[in-house]
C-alpha cells in the first residue's frame, strides 16, 4: 500500500482551488518557470513550450478544487500533465514530418550572460534536441528539474535501472556531441 505523500504544496493548491489570489500567484511564481523550462527543453521551441505551460495550469486550476492531499505530490502531478502534453506535440510533429526538430528560437542573451555562454548554451540546446526523446526526458527530469531517481523513474513509467541506462546513454551522446567544447574548456 502506498504511504500518504507529504507535499509542501498541498495547502496552496487547496487555497488556489477556492480562488485565493495570493495562493494562485504563489503557485504560478513557484511552478510556471519550472514547467516552462521542462517544456522548452523537451520541445526545443518557445511558443509551443508556453502553450504547454499554460495548458498544464488550466488543467491544474480545473483540478485544484478536487485536490486530495496525500495522494500525490502536486509538483509530480504537474510534471506528468506537462510531459503528456509535450509527448502529444512530439507525436504530432513526428506524424507531420520526419525532419529535424524546429530551429532553436534565438531569444537573445540574458543581461547577465556573455556571448560565449550564450553560444555554449545554444550548442547544448541543440545537442539535447538531437537526443532520442526518452534519453532527453531522463536528463531533463534528473539534471534540470532536479527530481530524484525514484520520482523521475515513476514519472517515466520505467524502473530505476532503466532510468540509469537512459541517463548514461544520453550523457554519453552529449559528451560526444560537445567534445570539442569540453576540450576547449
Amino acid at each position: 500500500m502506498r504511504q500518504p505523500v507529504a507535499d509542501p504544496d498541498d495547502a496552496l493548491v487547496l487555497m488556489a482551488g477556492r480562488g485565493d489570489p495570493r495562493a494562485i500567484r504563489a503557485l504560478v511564481a513557484a511552478k510556471l518557470p519550472r514547467l516552462l523550462a521542462l517544456a522548452r527543453r523537451m520541445l526545443g521551441d518557445s511558443p509551443e513550450a508556453e502553450d504547454v505551460a499554460q495548458e498544464t495550469f488550466i488543467k491544474a486550476w480545473r483540478f485544484a478544487p478536487r485536490w486530495r492531499p496525500g495522494a500525490a505530490k502536486f509538483d509530480t502531478w504537474l510534471h506528468r500533465v506537462a510531459l503528456n502534453l509535450c509527448y502529444d506535440r512530439l507525436r504530432r510533429r513526428a506524424r507531420m514530418s520526419a525532419g529535424p526538430p524546429p530551429d532553436q528560437v534565438d531569444e537573445g542573451p540574458a543581461p547577465d550572460r556573455n556571448l560565449h555562454a550564450v553560444d555554449v548554451g545554444r550548442r547544448v540546446d541543440g545537442a539535447l534536441a538531437a537526443l532520442p526523446d526518452r534519453q532527453r526526458e531522463a536528463i531533463v527530469l534528473c539534471h534540470y528539474q532536479d527530481l530524484g531517481n525514484i520520482e523521475a523513474a515513476d514519472l517515466m513509467g520505467v524502473s530505476v535501472e532503466a532510468l540509469e541506462s537512459l541517463l548514461s546513454r544520453g550523457r554519453r551522446a552529449l559528451r560526444t556531441a560537445l567534445a570539442d567544447m569540453a576540450a576547449g574548456g
Partner: peptide
C-alpha cells in the same frame, strides 16, 4: 556545459494569462 543551457523566465503576458485562467 549542461548548466549553460538557460531557459528565460516566463514573460509577464504568459504569467497573467495563467493567473487569469485560475478559479475566481
Amino acid at each position: 556545459l549542461l548548466s549553460e543551457s538557460v531557459v528565460p523566465p516566463p514573460g509577464f503576458a504568459l504569467r497573467e494569462r495563467v493567473i487569469l485562467a485560475a478559479p475566481k
